[in-house]
Design a protein around this nucleic acid. Structure first.
Lengths: 194, 194
DNA sequence: CCAAAATCCGAATAATTGCTCAATAATATA
DNA sequence: TATATTATTGAGCAATTATTCGGATTTTGG
């Protein structure tokens, strides 16, 4: 195993990761094997093992990429909402953020969140991201609501879980997903006024 | 493959299913292989294939068992709540029902809902159960709330998703899970009054 | 242009795993 | 008790898959 130096080697690395992500999204984790990845990437198995120590390492790149995207989304939201304490605006931003995060590549998202083996370190990173989201929201709510930690936990977990269910699981809904999302927003806003 | 007739054969079948369920709960789906199942069941691989056409069939028994349990829980709740239209009582029963369903064997529950391969027929059965729960709740809400179908969808999906997250995923909470559940109940009740 | 380094190749290996089958044992039946 | 039926066994087959490695090819730097 070595580091990619030349441009074509970097292209190989990218092709391998992309091929694995596409197979994962289209056919699920059981279909992701090293020979299929190499074929799809237009590369030989040998080349795969030039740059990745094992199959799991390829998956790890995909997982890390998604976690990083989520972390950046949170950071962007936190900075653009700095100083905002209007609970209605905060709830709308929360729901919109989770919707945005889940509507990209839903098949891949589903595979990542419910097929693929996730390491303890990656689980910890997910939990840390959740905790950070809750903390930021709790701090923003603190001036206007009681029990901000409890309320923020409920808000974040509800928004995340409903976005999952409605956008990723292919589940029957009485309204389009975006209208269900505004219904959820209504519920969460009401909760903050109680 | 044959049907178990003698008592010891039925014991073998049970031991195989139980062994598979225990391995699944303790070590996850990748650890569930036929040799491990046989060893854990105190039986030889040959005996396993005497009563199950393949490995998937063992898993199917476990899945069917859980789906049946959920269906029975719904049926029991529906009959014990027949005629009830008090929205507060309905929401409390809904949350309590999902909590009860998720607090049994959470490890197994987690493996079943996010590791294991589920057939289209089984997915359909899960969706049918969800739809039936929503319909029953919507009918009970109809006299007292507007848009009962939309509201029931939101109530059921929220209660289910939060029970999952809080009881099955091992996630940090600012209060014990049961107190979080009553907080969720409060939120859902408020939503029905809006 | 040439040697060294980097990259790529893919048949072969090793390990795992679902599953079979021929032989053996236990139980039922007459 | 004798025979047939049912049940159990576990070594081994077949298929799949992750990974290796010796050698071919391409690129780089002098």
């Amino acid at each position: 195993m070595r580091q990619a130096q030349q441009a074509r080697a970097k292209a190989t690395v990218d092709a391998v990761v992309e091929a694995a992500a596409r197979i994962l999204a289209e056919a699920g984790w059981p279909a992701v094997n090293t020979n299929a990845i190499a074929r799809r990437a237009g590369v030989s198995v040998g080349s795969v093992y030039e740059y990745f120590p094992n199959k799991q390492a390829i998956l790890d790149v995909i997982i890390d990429r998604h976690l990083t995207e989520a972390e950046e989304t949170l950071a962007a939201a936190a900075s653009s909402l700095a100083g905002v304490t209007d609970t209605g605006v905060l709830v709308e931003a929360l729901v919109a953020g989770f919707v945005r995060l889940h509507e990209n590549d839903p098949r891949l998202h589903r595979a990542l969140s419910s097929e693929v083996p996730v390491s303890p370190a990656q689980r910890a990173r997910v939990e840390a991201l959740r905790k950070r989201t809750i903390s930021l929201l709790a701090a923003a709510l603190a001036p206007n609501v009681s029990d901000p930690g409890i309320r923020a936990t409920l808000l974040v977990d509800t928004a995340d879980a409903l976005a999952h269910r409605w956008l990723i699981d292919e589940v029957g809904l009485p309204l389009p997903a975006d209208r269900m999302a505004s219904e959820a927003t209504k519920m969460l806003k009401g909760y903050l006024l109680s």
